[in-house]
Amino acid sequence: MDHKISRRGFLKGSLAAVGAAGAAALPLPSVARGEAQGELATLIDIRKCIGCEACVEACKEVNEHKFPRPKKPFPTMYPSRVKVSDWSDKQDVTDRLTPYNWLFIQEATVKVKGEEETLTFPRRCMHCQNPPCADLCPWGAARKLKNGITRIDSDICLGGSKCRAVCPWHIPQRQTGVGLYLDLLPSLAGNGVMYKCDRCYDRIEKGALPACIDVCPEKVQKIGPRAQIVREAHEIAKQINGYIYGEKENGGTNTIYVSPVPFEELNRAVEKGPGKPGLDPVKNSMAHADNLAKAMVIAPVAGVAAAVGKFYKTMKGISGEEAGK
């Protein structure tokens, strides 16, 4: 990893100029622009990442205005089992996801072609195609946008952290003492706001690239229409005899990783825990909803059929009685 640290110093300097900010942001490739294109996905080529954290710093800088500014002291929470989640004094933490760090670099020391190597790669929200965080949010605070971004509206979120519980990677992170709950029943309901990567939706709206893609000196990530990104991922995987993660996970995501080593190995090698997601195979969390929705179409028809059957039986009985008289 030594070579990475030295590069990191160099890149940090460069980043000051590049990131000065997203103002000089590279435009979104023309193929990725336009609402008619549908969902946009990102391709992350793990081979290219040098772990410089340029993406992490750019993310922080560009999204700083969206970060929580909690009011202290926090309201007393009832019941006492409800714990505050305060990251406001740890805003510099970059080795995991926090409300102030929506992207971090994960490391995995694995064998690549027989030689031990440390691979690094950016981790953040996967932006699922059918995101359980948005589907199951009871307030509509988490939503999926037409361009494939899943974002949490910090003006509406109450910080119940259901989104984190249902997310297969437990991505969203909570900050107490901020948001709508303070104006409702701060001691009894809610506990702040949940934060996560919104894939720079505001920059994409203006035709710019997400900050992490924009500043990456190694072009680790690219963004484009999902079908094209998936196709490219498969082409790379074929060329390097590699592996893909994110295409099918949780029913499909808009973040596609390509790796020279199996993701099972990477999953074993990465440090996992709160704010540090793994790379497990993930089944479609919302498959049950898709299947049961089909039954909902049939249900009223079955009810009507039962009522018609009862009516027919009754009428048959009446005509039978009349015939017997």
Partner: peptide, 15 residues
Amino acid sequence: GAIVLLALAGYVAFD
């Protein structure tokens, strides 16, 4: 439950 509710609604309405 929603499936049962919809079936019940269809039945009661037509009944």
